[in-house]
Design a protein around this nucleic acid. Structure first.
Lengths: 243, 243
DNA sequence: GAGTGGTCTAGACCACGAG
DNA sequence: TCGTGGTCTAGACCACTCA
């Protein structure tokens, strides 16, 4: 037997799917809905929490619950092909960039294969689509490969990427590790997502032909709208069936 | 000001992190904890729900709340290198396999680039580690490439994989699409995870040298213990800076 | 049957947003 | 100020597990 919470969530999902509730619409107040479904407020709120975790409904304190606009999906394309933006390749995208200098420590030092304390340039990117932020990237580069002076704050994102291309030796290997977790409180507020909405994280390690790690990137993408795609080409089987 | 729920969750997290609560331990009953923290049961349960979503605590109806054993992380290695298991490469792993015949429809047909209704062999894999299931894979192969007769139910997983290697033409391209979502109710119960724990899904499309899709795979991995890793090698820059 | 978690109720009080 | 959601309470009743 489905719980009332699930029944209500299903009904609301259906109302949204069939367009009886349209994107951007404000739902009736929780008290109203609770009366309508003849349940108590906590039960109704539980149902809404489910929809919220699915990214269907957005709660705004003091205003109400709103049907989320169907989000344009963000596709992260893996493998870091030399030319081309690599964070996200979608049109109406603005990226806020902030560059600072930090020092490698802990996990980051290991990722870059540098001793703790090595100076790094940190590039903080916040991708936007219209008003809504939708991706967060922290890129770390050893200072000698990207002196902060060469990456002025004022540089727009596109310029920054091509600047990096010039500065760095040709890339040879990209390793991308993907995992899922709940956002930190900071990430949730930066991305303006519910802290119950899981995020896709990509840890990217880029090495040059000599095997030196020239960049480490930590990307955080909201799980409700992010995909990652990897395409691997197998150049002709050189060693036919070894095992 | 942190809510009581968060304060309690933080405290319990800390108790687990510092080993005052050990993996496998049963927590005091909810009523007991509620009294201890001087909150009502719903509030305490909210705190536990947070830990549950993080995979730190497992609730067992009628028995109690238990600290999860630190899960061995599952690493999915992308790029489908010809030899080698591709779902998961960890040692104490048993896979339950079930083979059936189905017909392509909807999304699946598109994925395989086959007309709707085409006969397929479905291979259902459930990866285990000890008692606990930890990965779910549905693999679809056009029947002519893998006649069900050739893949008998009795085949263990390893044998099945090598059998497939023999049957199919050499693979040329693997496309893997990754996303995050909440598990379906069925997936949650099959994997024995909370339905609030996001899963990592991998949709893998494998094509042969002629561009024909020879396999589609839908993988579902619990978000609290699954990673995916992709390594891309850039063979020498053949076309130096096109754009 | 005793103890556990699962679900739900019918309120209370606070914090936020807008007029 | 008023309506909204955010949090919390102190119970009730049911379902499951285990002795």
């Amino acid at each position: 037997m489905p719980s009332r919470r699930d029944a209500i969530a299903d009904d609301l999902r259906d109302r949204i799917a069939t367009g009886r509730l349209k994107p951007g619409d404000r739902l009736p107040s929780e008290a109203h809905l609770a009366a309508q479904y003849m349940v108590s407020t906590p039960t109704l709120r539980n149902a809404l929490a489910a929809l919220q975790a699915e990214g269907l409904v957005e709660k705004v304190h003091g205003k109400g619950n709103f049907v989320c606009r169907p989000v344009r999906r963000i596709t992260y394309v893996g493998g870091g092909r030399p030319p081309g933006t690599h964070i996200v390749d979608l049109a109406p995208l603005s990226v806020t960039v902030r560059t600072t200098r930090v020092r490698a420590r802990g996990h980051l030092a290991a990722l870059l294969k540098l001793p703790t304390g090595s100076p790094l340039t940190e590039i903080l990117c916040l991708g936007h689509e219209g008003e809504r932020p939708h991706s967060l990237a922290r890129i770390y580069i050893p200072c000698d490969l990207a002196p902060a002076a060469a990456l002025r704050e004022a540089l727009p994102y596109e310029a920054l990427v091509s600047r990096l291309m010039e500065l760095r030796p040709p890339l040879a290997e990209v390793r991308e590790e993907i995992s899922v977790r709940l956002p930190t409180q900071e990430e949730a507020s930066t991305l303006r997502i519910s802290s119950a909405l899981a995020v896709l994280t990509i840890t990217r390690q880029t090495a040059d032909t000599a095997g030196r790690v020239v960049e480490a990137a930590l990307l955080v993408l909201p799980g409700d709208r992010a995909d990652a795609v990897f395409t691997t080409h197998h150049v002709i089987d050189e060693r036919p069936a070894k095992a």
